[in-house]
């Protein structure tokens, strides 16, 4: 547990269900009435076998997917957003400002250099008229984040020239550029060797403590799960114990 005491939830999920339609009128229920609270400055790890719905949960929370039923509530500075009830622009704004994504396969844009990749969410989220004023501030923050993840001096390098671990560091820096409330990490070390994974685990934990960002990490890795404040096990679309999701 970090030094910052978790208080208010930044995200609450209530009765979250996600069904996928199959052929012949059948459907597959991937998430079954899930309740989950993630508090400020809390790191939560979700573990479970493949296919239990971990990634689907992450996509629903990240507003990339829409739950079949249930509610998602996002809190920030006294403001609340509820899904359903968000339009496309609000969903995109939340993805950009409230949430940061870290993917298993890093997903850096090969046509941009390292610095540009890190700046990308800020470029996406800043209106054209404001960009001129914000550019230097964003660039300075991107350089600072790269310094924090240990990639200072590599700003102009192409992502293709970096190792897997370095690319994931760039992806983590990118996820943090807009100072999000919630970092969603989908198997962040699933594609890395154990040595590099360990370094990423340490980095995530360190960033969590430094920035106080809430982190929801889906992982198979017991080492990473053990570093979380809370560890939730998923089985067949539910948490192992129904109360787990909202417990602290």
């Amino acid at each position: 547990m970090n030094d910052l005491q978790p208080s208010h939830p930044v995200l609450s999920a209530r009765g979250l269900c996600r069904e996928f339609s199959l052929t012949e009128g059948r459907s597959l229920e991937v998430l079954r009435h899930l309740d989950l609270d993630i508090h400020e400055a809390e790191m939560v790890a979700i573990v479970g076998l493949s296919g239990v719905g971990k990634s689907t949960l992450l996509h629903c929370i990240g507003l990339l997917d829409t739950p079949s039923s249930g509610q998602l509530i996002y809190h920030k500075d006294g403001q609340t957003w509820r899904s359903p009830g968000l339009d496309e622009a609000q969903r995109c704004a939340l993805r950009n400002q409230f949430i940061g994504f870290v993917f298993q396969f890093f997903h850096l844009l090969n046509d941009l250099d390292v610095l540009e990749n890190v700046m990308l969410p800020a470029i996406v989220g800043t209106p054209k008229a404001e960009w001129k004023q914000r550019k230097h501030e964003v660039e300075a923050r991107a350089r600072s984040l790269l310094d924090t993840v240990g990639l200072s001096g590599r700003e102009k390098q192409a992502p293709g020239t970096l190792s897997g671990g370095e690319r994931q560091r760039v992806a983590i820096a990118r996820a943090l550029i807009n100072n999000p409330r919630l970092l969603l990490c989908d198997e962040p070390t699933g594609n890395l060797d154990s040595n590099t994974s360990e370094k990423i685990h340490t980095l995530l934990r360190q960033l969590h403590e430094d920035f106080g960002t809430s982190i929801l990490v889906v992982t198979h890795d017991p080492d990473l799960a053990s570093r979380a404040d809370r560890r939730l096990a998923m089985i067949d679309g539910r948490f192992e114990s129904a109360a787990d999701g909202t417990d602290r």
Binding site: C92, R95, N96, Q97, R174
Partner: peptide, 8 residues
């Protein structure tokens, strides 16, 4: 990726 980062 762009959609995940907030592009509409």
């Amino acid at each position: 990726v762009l959609r995940a980062l907030g592009a509409t």
